[in-house]
Design a protein around this nucleic acid. Structure first.
Length: 272
DNA sequence: AATAGTGACAACCGCAGAGTA
DNA sequence: ATACTCTGCGGTTGTCACTAT
């Protein structure tokens, strides 16, 4: 028997989500939580397939998402994790709280990949392109490149950091990651046991980074995730995010929802 | 001002694996 | 053991905004 399509193709809307659709989806999830995605569109009154709803929620509407560009520290962490994990974007994303696999994947393809190529580093193997060319010339390179060994990856990562400094020597230190951030990253990179635990452990690494890294008062991109203790707390950001267009919805749209998370949000709003 | 080219990001598609009856 | 459903993942495509000509 053939596989059923994830949704009835007829009457299913595709393309960009409207504010109205977002509102419906948010209201539904805040009321009912994340349940059977297939049923969500019907119950929420959306002409979308469940898959699309899930994607929209996880990649854009989820309250615990950080928006905006990846910080230098996050970017370096992505590079290092990619060297070890490959294109396992969800794994990588799990180490960066508030970031989605899609976001990291996009950032990799549009920014980091080019950056590494510019530095002469193969974004796939994380080895120097010159080194690879030499290996090819000497016909010593295997058909399938072996996964980089920890010390090699460390070397390449440091190369990235060093090259980054070399390449951006004209830029001010403020534009690069701070020295302390680099030190933290180095400590992570050099801690093989920690890296090995990535295969099993789901604890976000950047959380640890942020906990110990000094946060500049004017740097809004660094959020102390330690303060964000619960999903309910996280929802508060919805009211501040203009990109998301929550202001278009108005608070009235949430008044209809009689859920604990929402009450928490409203209480927090009143406190402010 | 109009058009083409490019980059960035959101969204879709198909597949695989886990779970269940 | 098998058939089926549901969810998550990674690759790819589509769309929009910006820049160059």
């Amino acid at each position: 028997m053939g596989r059923q399509p994830c949704c009835d193709k007829l009457g299913v809307k595709k393309g960009p989500w409207t504010a109205e659709e977002d509102k419906k989806l948010i209201n539904f999830i805040l009321t009912n939580g994340q349940c059977c995605w297939r049923a969500v569109p019907k119950l929420a009154g959306l002409k979308r397939c469940g898959k699309s709803c899930r994607l929209r929620w996880t990649n854009y509407l989820r309250p615990d998402l950080k928006r905006g560009l990846l910080t230098e520290a996050e970017e370096q962490l992505v590079i290092d994790l990619h060297a070890r994990l490959g294109n396992r974007w969800s794994k990588i994303a799990s180490k960066l709280p508030g970031r989605t696999d899609n976001e990291i994947k996009n950032h990799w393809n549009t920014h980091i990949k080019k950056k590494l190529l510019k530095m002469g580093i193969d974004p796939v193997t994380h080895e120097s392109l010159n080194k690879q060319a030499e290996l090819k010339d000497s016909s010593l390179s295997p058909a399938e490149p072996l996964p980089p060994q920890p010390h090699e990856v460390k070397e390449s990562t440091e190369g990235v950091l060093n090259n980054s400094e070399d390449q951006n020597s004209s830029s001010s230190p403020d534009e690069n990651s701070s020295g302390e951030e680099s030190l933290l990253l180095d400590s992570i990179c050099s801690d093989d046991s920690l890296i090995n635990s990535l295969w099993l452990d789901e604890t976000p690494l950047v959380e640890a980074l942020w906990d110990s890294a000094p946060i500049a008062p004017d740097d809004n991109t660094k959020i102390d995730m330690g303060l964000v203790s619960s999903w309910e707390d996280n929802c508060a950001w919805l009211f501040d995010c203009e990109d998301f267009g929550i202001h278009d919805f108005g608070f009235n749209s949430f008044d209809e929802v009689e859920s604990c998370p929402l009450q928490t949000i409203e209480m927090k709003e009143e406190e402010h």
